[in-house]
Amino acid sequence: MFRIAVYKLTTKLILVHNHPSGNTNVSDLDKSLTNRLMVVGQLLEIQVIDQLKLENTLHIAKKMKLKGMDIKTISEITGLSPEDI
């Protein structure tokens, strides 16, 4: 994970990983991995400044629909076509 950062002489890094299931809860594994990667960053003198979790857009749209949001608004927010929602 840090190989390209070291190669490019990066001093700061943002970690990104996905949660295709749509489950946005932070798991113990997420916490553990993030802590370990921050330690690695410190050893390499690369500051880990943030971590982003990506979700499946369709899953988010379905959640919005279940909460009563109209399809047109969901389409505008997510970029999905009304047919896909």
Rank of each mutant, 00 (worst) to 15 (best):
M1N: 13
M1S: 15
F2I: 13
I4N: 10
V6H: 00
Y7M: 07
K8I: 04
K8L: 08
K8Y: 04
L9K: 12
L9S: 08
T10G: 05
T11D: 07
T11L: 04
K12L: 06
K12M: 11
K12P: 08
K12H: 14
K12N: 13
L13A: 10
L13C: 13
I14M: 06
I14F: 06
I14P: 03
I14N: 03
L15P: 11
L15K: 04
V16W: 03
V16G: 01
V16S: 04
H17D: 12
H17A: 10
H17C: 09
H17G: 07
N18Q: 14
H19F: 12
H19Q: 13
H19G: 01
P20Y: 01
P20K: 03
P20W: 01
G22I: 02
N23I: 11
T24Q: 10
T24Y: 11
N25P: 03
V26A: 03
V26E: 07
D28N: 09
L29I: 05
D30G: 03
D30I: 02
D30S: 01
D30Q: 05
K31Q: 10
K31T: 05
K31N: 12
K31D: 05
K31H: 04
S32R: 15
S32Y: 15
L33M: 14
T34G: 04
T34V: 12
N35V: 02
N35K: 13
R36D: 15
R36M: 15
L37A: 10
L37C: 12
L37P: 14
L37H: 10
V39L: 13
V39S: 08
V39P: 01
V40W: 14
G41Q: 07
L44C: 03
Q47M: 13
Q47W: 14
Q47A: 14
V48K: 06
V48H: 05
D50Y: 00
D50G: 08
Q51V: 15
Q51F: 07
Q51H: 09
K53R: 13
K53G: 06
L54T: 14
E55Q: 13
N56A: 05
N56F: 09
T57R: 03
T57P: 08
L58G: 03
L58Y: 11
H59C: 06
K62R: 13
K62E: 06
K63H: 06
K63S: 07
K63Y: 04
K63L: 10
M64A: 11
K65C: 02
K65G: 00
L66D: 06
L66R: 06
L66P: 00
L66T: 03
K67Q: 12
K67R: 12
K67N: 08
G68W: 00
M69T: 04
M69D: 01
M69W: 01
D70S: 02
I71L: 00
K72A: 10
T73W: 02
I74C: 08
I74F: 06
S75V: 00
S75Q: 01
E76P: 13
I77C: 12
T78H: 08
T78M: 08
T78G: 07
T78E: 09
G79A: 08
G79Y: 11
G79D: 09
L80Y: 04
S81E: 09
S81G: 08
P82C: 00
P82Q: 00
P82E: 01
E83H: 02
D84F: 03
D84W: 02
I85S: 01
I85C: 05
I85R: 02
I85Y: 00
I85P: 01
